[in-house]
Design a protein around this nucleic acid. Structure first.
Ligand SMILES: Nc1ncnc2c1ncn2[C@@H]1O[C@H](COP(=O)(O)OP(=O)(O)OP(=O)(O)O)[C@@H](O)[C@H]1O
Length: 820
DNA sequence: CACGTTTATGTTTTT
DNA sequence: CATAAACGTG
């Protein structure tokens, strides 16, 4: 919608007022331009991008629907819309094209896909992709297989043998195809490539055929097909495209960007590229410059170096990590915080469990500071791999601390959740063969492997005039036992009833919950489920469907039923997390965030914990295995991203397990060394860090709270030290009880000078670490009553991460009495 | 042939 | 511990 400048010019002035000179220059660059904003963490890149959208709307007078903004996640998109809405209360942003590359592309395909014969196509998620790959491989004839050169075939050999798939690893095949797609190479063009493998050509072609026949697009296809679409039918209206997190774009995304608009603003930080496993290429910065220079067009580059997020010491620490990379130019970010707290608090522990206890006790200490200084929502625990969250969750549960998982995928991988979603899928979409195959015998309907094969064989004979579901209705043509037939009919009757109900509710999304109840009950799924956890998870999905609001539809988008719209909305893994509402524990505000480092991209917290800084965790075993410099560098960037999420306090930790300590899980690779990335930390022995009263006062000041004069700091401090000491000396906390002579490792507990972490002028900085604290001698007696209660965390704690599923366990050890 | 039970085997990161 | 393949039973 057009808006007059005079009405809003004060608006842009206000916005520019919150920016520094460099940021302002970036924001107010001419709308007709190519602009790169390259800057380190916390320099306000996202803020600049958001403000630039406002600038383009207000000053550039570009209608919202003619601007595309790509963000890395749905969450980032939502945040940006929220900020824009606050900035520009008078402008309707509904038509702004903002979202991930995948969702923007998928929407374009939904709208115009008919031109390429893609109407009605849905998304094949990773699980479906895996299914089609395996199906494709198992269908290869021995003639086809024997026609390939051993050299070509060997590329696809995995560690294991795969008898069902001619010894071809589905994983490798899948990732190779994905690799081609993210380079923008379509199946019909692959043969022209220099690096050509006849095997891969056949796999790719067959796989793509399969997707087409099943009317689905995989994630990569969303981009690839969209690229094809706009190459043939260009969008003429887009006046500007803005790309966030440019360092993590791949080739096809770069090509899409060129095609979508000739005016471009990108922001990114090469040091934060952590998605090259998904073919992201940091070289896109240079490629973009070359691309436009080839067309005699120049690219403006603006850098920012004021950091508004982190303290001086956190920036120093992060730079110390990054400068380990060969040939990297040092980056000097200037912290805008007046105060800083010294080097990160760190500790070396003896097991993952002990490490979790250390982390969580730091959290309980911080939470127990008087005057509600900190809330759970101010803190985050960031790990390299999702599985590492497990022990931490257990400990958080044990201490009754509410937490939530950011972008946890585990929930959607649960069996009962998958089946429930499959029921929704087949009811919404008659062509979803995979969903039929996965639901028809769950709950058990006496249809085993063999029968399922027969049915599947029959279903795949479907011709393009009818749907897979219609084909299943004629199943009586197949010879099956009468018992099986009647069972299939029970299933079919149920599906058709559900479909009728779906018809009846029309576009009223508020009735979806009722339909959901009908489906979960009448399918027999609820009855089949055994644990209360599983039923809870079904309820979780119900909550998600209950919150679903269909997006505003363009007029000319082909119709899709409301359930299908819901499934589309979660198909791209873009589920928004439930807002932090009331927590179970009124004492706490919000929740501690737990996330993988990848999931924490672009986010920030006052307090950040980065546990697991050991060889095998960060860098991960996978990166160690191939021992490529590039892999190690990416791991290092991961750590860099993690530590630069912290605003005020950073806690890092690692553990090394003893060689002789064989535990039950013998397959687990032993963690035996601290991470190479922290080699520069000299005194790695157990460090017990205390607060100093001064730094604590500074913390209050920076958070705008008053430091209570009656607070007995010494008492608090002593209790803290004792708590940490008891964790370190309590070997019940490690996986297995140790022999007593191993305690020797821990006699040198004490404080290290933290200053050696990086050079700085001593007097200018407040230290968060108390360097004068006394040496502490571990008490060697593992006390009996310290034994952890037998408490098994429910896996649901992961679900959507919306709430701590389980109530705090009845026994809450070691809990400070004065949580305010 | 379906389905329950035993046993081998193995943890990146995600749109 | 969590999943999948292999094995055994009715
Ligand atoms: N000119 C400014 N004045 C005050 N605060 C600012 C300014 N610019 C940015 N900030 C604040 O700094 C923090 C970091 O900003 P932002 O998230 O935009 O950084 P970023 O460069 O995108 O970081 P990352 O690379 O880690 O994603 C935010 O809290 C933001 O509000």
């Amino acid at each position: 919608m057009a808006t007059s400048t005079s009405n809003h010019s004060h608006g842009i002035v206000n916005i520019l007022h919150t920016l520094n000179a460099n940021q302002r220059q970036a924001v107010t660059s001419p709308p007709i331009s190519k602009l790169q904003i390259i800057a380190g963490p916390g320099t306000g890149k996202t803020k600049v991008l958001t403000s630039r959208v406002a600038f383009l709307l207000l000053e550039g007078k570009i209608p919202a629907e003619d601007i595309i903004v790509t963000t890395f996640t749905k969450k980032a998109a939502n945040e940006m819309i929220e900020r824009l809405t606050n900035m520009l209360p008078d402008i309707n942003l509904d038509k702004l094209k903002i979202g991930t590359f995948h969702s923007i592309c998928f929407k374009l395909i939904m709208k115009h896909g008919g031109k390429l014969g893609l109407s009605g196509f849905t998304i094949a998620d990773e699980r479906d992709k895996d299914f089609y790959i395996k199906e494709m491989l198992s269908e290869l004839t021995s003639i086809e297989v024997s026609s390939f050169s051993p050299h070509d075939m060997n590329q696809f050999k995995g560690k294991k043998s795969f008898p069902k798939y001619h010894d071809l690893s589905p994983k490798i095949v899948s990732s190779q195809i994905s690799h081609l797609k993210s380079k923008g190479i379509t199946w019909d063009k692959y043969s022209k490539e220099k690096e050509y493998n006849a095997c891969l050509d056949l796999f790719y072609t067959k796989y793509q055929n399969k997707l087409l026949r099943n009317k689905v697009l995989d994630f990569d296809d969303c981009l690839l097909a969209c690229h094809e679409l706009i190459s043939k039918f260009p969008l003429t209206n887009i006046q500007h495209i803005l790309v966030d997190e440019f360092q993590d774009t791949n080739e096809i995304q770069l090509q899409l960007m060129y095609k979508l608009s000739s005016n471009v603003t990108i922001v990114g930080d090469p040091d934060q590229c952590i998605y090259s496993f998904r073919n992201a290429q940091v070289i896109n910065f240079q490629k973009m410059i070359d691309h436009y220079q080839g067309k005699q067009q120049s690219v403006d580059i603006i850098t920012l170096d004021n950091n508004y997020r982190s303290t001086h010491d956190i920036l120093g620490f992060s730079e110390t990590i990054m400068k380990q990379e060969q040939d990297r130019k040092t980056k000097q970010l200037i912290s805008q915080h007046a105060k800083t707290f010294g080097s990160p608090v760190y500790a070396q522990l003896a097991s993952d469990i002990q490490e979790s206890k250390w982390v969580v006790s730091q959290i309980t200490t911080l939470l127990s500071l008087p005057n509600q200084l900190l809330h759970p929502q101010d803190m985050a625990i960031l790990v390299r791999s999702a599985y590492q969250t497990r022990v931490i969750e257990t400990e958080l549960n044990r201490q009754g601390i509410p937490y939530h998982m950011i972008r946890g995928r585990a929930f959607w991988d649960r069996k009962e959740v998958v089946v429930m979603m499959d029921y929704l899928r087949i009811i919404a979409n008659e062509n979803d063969r995979v969903a039929i195959l996965r639901t028809i015998n769950y709950p058990k309907r006496g249809i085993g492997e063999k029968t399922l094969e027969k049915i599947d064989e029959f279903l795949r004979l479907v011709d393009s005039n009818s749907t897979v579901y219609e084909k299943l209705l004629t199943i009586s043509e197949v010879k099956l036992s009468t018992k099986v037939k009647s069972n299939v009919n029970v299933y079919l009757k149920f599906i058709s009833q559900a479909k009728e109900k779906l018809q009846a509710i029309g576009d009223d999304e508020t009735k979806l919950v009722g339909l959901f109840d009908f489906i979960s009950k009448e399918s027999g799924l609820i009855k089949e489920l055994e644990t209360p956890t599983e039923i809870e998870n079904i309820d979780e999905i119900k909550k998600v469907i209950g919150q679903f609001v269909p997006p505003p539809q363009d007029e000319d988008v082909p119709y899709r039923n409301i359930l299908g719209q819901f499934l589309d909305s979660i198909g791209l893994n873009e589920t928004i997390e439930e807002q932090q509402q009331h927590s179970n524990h009124p004492k706490y505000k919000g929740r501690v965030s737990i996330s993988t480092i990848h999931g924490a991209k672009g986010l920030e917290w006052p307090i950040v914990f980065v546990p697991g800084l050991s060889e095998g965790l960060l860098p991960s075993n996978m990166a160690l295995r191939d021992n490529e410099v590039t892999s190690i560098n990416e791991e290092r960037r991961c750590l860099y991203v993690a530590v630069t999420r912290a605003k005020l306090l950073l806690y890092i930790s690692w553990y090394v397990e003893s060689e002789t300590d064989d535990n039950e899980q013998s397959w687990r690779m032993k963690i035996s060394e601290p991470s190479r990335f922290i080699n520069f930390i000299k005194n790695k022995g157990n460090v017990v860090s205390g607060f100093s009263q001064d730094s604590l006062k500074t913390l209050y000041e920076m958070l705008g709270k008053s430091y209570p004069s009656e607070f007995d700091f010494n008492k608090f401090h002593q209790a803290y030290l004792a708590k940490i000491e008891s964790i370190i000396s309590n070997f019940d906390g490690s996986r297995r009880r140790r022999r007593s002579n191993e305690f020797e490792d821990f006699t040198n507990i004490g404080f290290t000078e933290a200053t050696n972490i990086h050079n700085r002028k001593k007097n200018t900085i407040n230290h968060f670490l108390n360097r004068k604290a006394p040496r502490i001698h571990p008490l060697m007696k593992p006390s009996v009553n310290n034994k952890a209660p037998a408490y098994i965390p429910t896996r649901t704690g992961i679900s959507l991460g919306t709430k701590p599923r389980s109530k705090a366990p009845p026994y809450i050890p070691n809990r400070s009495k004065k949580i305010p």
